[in-house]
Design a protein around this nucleic acid. Structure first.
Length: 965
RNA sequence: GCCCCCGUAGCCCAAUGGCAGAGGCAGGCCCCUUAAAAGGGCCCCAGUGUGGGUUCGAGUCCCACCGGGGGCACCA
């Protein structure tokens, strides 16, 4: 970075020989980075195991602290100045807490599998492993140059076979478990089979399509019943198919526009057989356990919305064809207003409810594209399946549907009501069917309008209501039959009464549903974890998934000739996913002895999504080289275990971007809870405290045509910004290539040094706040370090100019107030305040001791206080002050409370809340003394003259306020 | 359309309901300097987006609106 307006570069002869310059900063920084690495300064000992060395001396008597950043994708574009914001924040905090006496573990790793790494490799025509390894080297170098206090022995990369061995092992755990609703936790699937065998439990009806009791099932049927209970299962269902990426995607990876989060390609719903993880079993716990987490409210809210609990009832509508339609509704109170029923186009009952011919007098508009009901229904189903999510969005919500020809009965009114299919009802939510109540639902109102269906209001709108459907609160109307009368009741009472009536009559029951769907877990990509799954190639269990034994882990990702996925035209709806691993012919089949002799098996060719590796990486940092277990339970308990009753445990501070609110953060919580249920970890949540760092935006410039121009070549002049003497317009935006405003940490290291860069990033605002990056403002932080340097080092001679003379009495209150303020800033992650306090002290000492040596009593705390923020210069000055050891574990300065209170204070004097004067009083003056002093203030006397004093407010140390009557 | 967050000096940001300013950038003046500045000192600059309310007292709490950012969006 060298924007014209910033600086002119001075030559060496121009400046004092021992000034703190970017070049000097660079030398100091590199030498301390080397020394920290050599001495293992930031190695955090474990209580047991291979990393336990030094635990007794360094850690046993100390509280622990586990600090973690969301690890980066090694993307190949390298880091820009926005990336390290969070890393620096956790670094400052972890260094501070280490000086506060904690055994601090700060770690970093790489999210190396997945689309970004694969796409970069495809673009550059190299193998993803090669590019990813190169990128990791480059990012490691940048992180080291930043001076971060990671325990580098513990770094992990998700593509490392020794890492993904355990990702596969955890998948096996999930596959080998089921959710025990009664115990409200996951349990081994073997327990379930044992209970079936013992006759103490029967398979859940939904998981047993055979309609036989367990003892009556044959072996193959038993296997399929058991498989249907697993937390990881294969099923055929409509999924998000993205031809442009050549893979299926999870709901969380599809944007609100119906496009892929990555690449922005259209996404289509189509039925495919895919792996899913039963995250929905955890919906309630994922929701309620949020309460105990120290997370930003906005993130908790996003997770709550995503999980989307709604409380209501299921109601079974009998039909004239014998079948019964189960609907879900949150408004059972409106049943009297249900004038038709709608199924999702893909609903399994559609076939059975479609009549051969239209009933007499069926309106033309109900018949769809024409023909008889079977043709009209099939045509509509095909139309619905072909529409991308995007088209559904942009169709302006015009309601369409087709009548099936059959009727249901509204059991509250006894009336026959028609049954439709319509794509405004979704397969995956509730039961995939609704009772339509146009009077109280806007969508149903629109549909009723379009198809001329009756509308009955069952909640009285307020007088003057001019809307259509009324969804608000009001008394029930038109809602009575022989055995139930809701009229006059409010919505809540009506709901309760209706549910009681439905249950008594056997028509329905109270039910809670969630918006959350099971997690689509397979991808047709090369660069991911292979599944530890094989299929028999013959026999009765052909195509039944079987996990490989632990000894066969890791299932290595094979090398293939062509690792790029087969992609298709963005809108090629009919394309079929094709897994690149299917081309690895030798790898595809394997001979295994799974207990019944050596047989041939076919491998699963899908890979896991890139979220898999990040679902548990915080655990692997704790015990990174363990070959026997993913993490020793003793070590997990030490770093992540609950601290007291009600504490979920987890990482003490986790920092990362808000864009992962419902992706990584939800998936990781789910995996962690499975591990918790199965007894592998003691913490019930992975991240106890979460902070989102803000986003940096940098200036970008557009020319007259609206094209972005290289920001680094833009000049700032009196009357605006110029590029090649042409005026350009400034805006602020995301840093990166597309806006041509890339600024890299390397630029900052070269121009200012890592310490200045760190200070500037922390100074521009609180960690969680987004802010613009102002290239011109960085200089202020260098000036601060230069002043600090000058307080300790003589710029002309290089000798230390700190003396042992006593400090001025006037400096002590300043020092101690600053210590107090710096601690406050550090504790609350508002490093901008800490830096401001330090600046205050630097300025005070600079001014007060301009012609004398700086008192050691001031210089040392100053150096220690800035150490977490600017660690290299602090270490350098600390050693020059005569301390041979690193200051990393030196105690952080403590304020002496005697100097925090002044003898006398200035208090404000108000009359009727308006400031009328200011008087000095002893700090411990009571209300009466303050009032007396205030009454002597001439301006106050004038304002009080002749007035009736109704009340006097006196706040000790602050103010006196006279309230006149 | 619904939900959440944020609006303080030219800019970035401070201020347990108690005198609106801690700190930095930019700007102005001065000092050091042959000259310069990535050196030093001093100074200028807002009444807190708008309108109500609660309170002795509101940047801070409540309501409505405006502006910016984010999330969700046919979820029954």
């Amino acid at each position: 970075m060298s924007q014209e307006q910033v600086v002119k570069t001075p030559t060496d002869s121009d400046i004092p020989p021992h000034r703190y310059t970017a070049a000097r900063a660079g030398r100091i920084e590199r030498s301390w980075q080397d020394r920290w690495a050599e001495e293992g300064t930031f190695a955090a000992p474990n209580p047991v195991g291979e990393l336990a060395e030094g635990f007794a001396e360094r850690a046993a008597e100390r509280p622990k602290l586990f600090v973690n950043d969301m690890f980066p994708y090694p993307s190949g574009e390298g880091l820009h100045v926005g990336h390290p914001l969070g890393y620096i924040g956790t670094d400052v905090y972890s260094r501070y807490m280490r000086m506060r006496g904690h055994n601090v573990l700060h770690t970093m790793g790489f999210d190396a599998f997945g689309l970004p790494a694969e796409q970069f490799a495809v673009q550059t025509g190299q193998h993803p492993r090669a590019t990813t390894e190169q990128n990791i080297v480059a990012i490691r170098r940048q992180l080291r140059r930043l001076g971060l206090d990671h325990d580098t022995r513990r770094s992990v990369a998700t593509m490392d076979p020794q890492y993904y061995k355990w990702t596969q092992w955890i998948f096996k755990q999930i596959f080998s478990s089921y959710y025990d609703e009664a115990a409200d936790r996951a349990r081994p699937i073997d327990d379930l089979v044992a209970e079936f065998d013992a006759g103490t439990r029967e398979p859940a009806a939904g998981n047993n399509p055979y309609g036989l009791r367990w003892p009556e099932l044959d072996a193959q049927q038993r296997n399929s019943v058991v498989d249907a209970h697993r937390l990881a299962y294969l099923n055929e269902a409509p999924v998000n198919w993205c031809p442009g990426l050549g893979t299926v995607l999870s709901n969380e990876e599809v944007t609100a526009d119906g496009r892929s989060e990555r690449g922005n390609f259209p996404v289509f719903r189509r039925p495919l057989k895919q792996w899913k993880l039963r995250i929905t079993a955890y919906a309630e716990r994922l929701l309620s356990d949020l309460d105990a987490l120290e997370w930003p409210e906005s993130i908790k809210l996003m997770q709550r919305n995503w999980i989307g609990r709604s409380i209501g009832a299921t109601i079974a509508f009998p039909t004239d064809r014998g079948l019964s339609i189960e609907v879900f509704t949150t408004r059972p109170d409106t049943l009297f207003g249900a004038t038709y029923v709608v199924l999702a186009p893909e609903h399994p009952l559609v076939k059975g409810l479609t009549t051969a011919d239209w009933p007499e007098a069926t309106a033309e508009s109900w018949r769809g594209v024409g023909g008889r009901p079977p043709e009209a229904v099939a045509a509509y189903q095909q139309l619905a399946s072909r529409r991308s999510e995007l088209e559904r969005q942009t169709d302006q919500r015009v309601k369409s549907g087709v009548f099936l020809g059959s009727f249901a009965t509204n059991m509250a009114t006894g009336q026959r009501i028609p049954v439709f299919i319509a794509d405004y009802v979704l397969t995956g939510y509730g039961t995939g069917a609704i009772m339509a109540v146009p009077g109280q639902d806007e969508r149903d109102w629109e549909f009723a309008g379009a198809y001329d269906l009756p509308i009955v209001r069952t909640v009285a709108p307020p007088s003057g209501f001019e809307g259509k459907a009324f969804t608000g609160e009001g008394p029930a109307i038109n809602s009575a039959n022989d055995s139930l009368d809701l009229n006059g009741l409010g919505v809540a009472d009506s709901k309760a009464a209706m549910i009681t009536w439905l249950v008594d009559a056997g028509h329905g029951q109270a039910r809670t549903t969630y918006r959350l769907r099971d997690w689509l877990f397979s991808r047709q990509r090369y660069w991911g974890e292979p599944f530890p799954i094989v299929y028999p190639v013959d026999g009765v269990d052909i195509d039944r998934p079987i996990v490989v034994p632990d000894e066969a882990l890791p299932v290595l990702l094979p090398d293939v000739e062509d690792y790029s996925p087969r992609t298709f035209a963005d809108d090629d709806v009919t394309s079929e996913p094709e897994a690149p691993l299917a081309r690895a012919t030798e790898w595809l089949t394997v001979e295994l002895d799974l207990g019944d002799g050596v047989k041939t098996y076919r491998r699963e060719t899908n890979t896991m999504p890139n979220w898999a590796g990040s679902c548990w990486y915080e655990l692997r940092y704790l015990d990174p080289h363990n070959d026997d277990v993913f993490c020793d339970p003793v070590i997990e308990k030490y770093w992540m275990g609950p601290r007291e009753d009600g504490d979920p445990g987890g990482v003490d501070l986790y920092v990362g971007g808000a864009e992962h609110a419902v992706l990584h953060l939800l998936y990781a919580r789910f995996w962690h809870k499975v591990l918790f249920d199965l007894g592998h970890v003691s913490s019930s949540e992975p991240f106890r405290r979460l902070v989102n760092q803000g986003m940096l935006q940098a200036p970008a410039y557009t020319d007259a045509r609206g094209m972005y121009v290289d920001a680094s070549r833009v000049e700032s002049r009196q009357d605006g910004f110029y590029y090649d003497d042409a005026a350009v317009r400034q805006e602020f935006g995301k840093i990166g290539k597309s806006l041509k405003n890339m600024i890299t940490p390397d630029d900052m290291f070269a121009d200012y040094g890592a310490d200045t860069f760190r200070l500037y990033e922390m100074f521009t605002g609180p960690l969680d706040q987004s802010r613009p990056w102002d290239p011109k403002a960085v200089i202020g932080m260098l000036r601060l370090l230069q002043r600090l340097w000058r307080l300790v080092i003589d710029e002309q001679t290089g000798s230390v100019r700190v003396g042992n003379a006593p400090v001025d009495a006037g400096s002590l209150p300043v020092l101690n107030r600053v210590i107090e303020g710096v601690r406050e800033g550090m504790d609350s992650l508002r490093f901008n305040i800490a830096i401001a306090r330090i600046t205050e002290l630097v300025n005070h000492v600079t001014q007060s001791y301009a012609d004398r040596p700086t008192p050691r009593e001031l210089a040392e705390p100053l150096v220690l206080m800035i150490a977490p923020l600017a660690p290299h210069i602090a270490e350098e000055l600390w050693s020059k002050l005569g301390h041979p050891e690193s200051l990393a574990r030196t105690n952080f300065p403590v304020a002496d409370s005697r100097f925090l209170v002044d003898d006398t204070v200035q208090i404000a004097v108000q009359v009727n809340g308006r400031l009328r004067g200011s008087v000095a009083v002893p700090a411990d003056a009571d209300a009466a003394a303050m009032e007396a002093a205030a009454r002597r203030e001439p301006n106050v006397i004038a304002h009080l003259d002749g007035a009736q004093i109704r009340r006097v407010i006196a706040v000790p140390g602050k103010l006196v306020n006279f309230v006149l009557g």
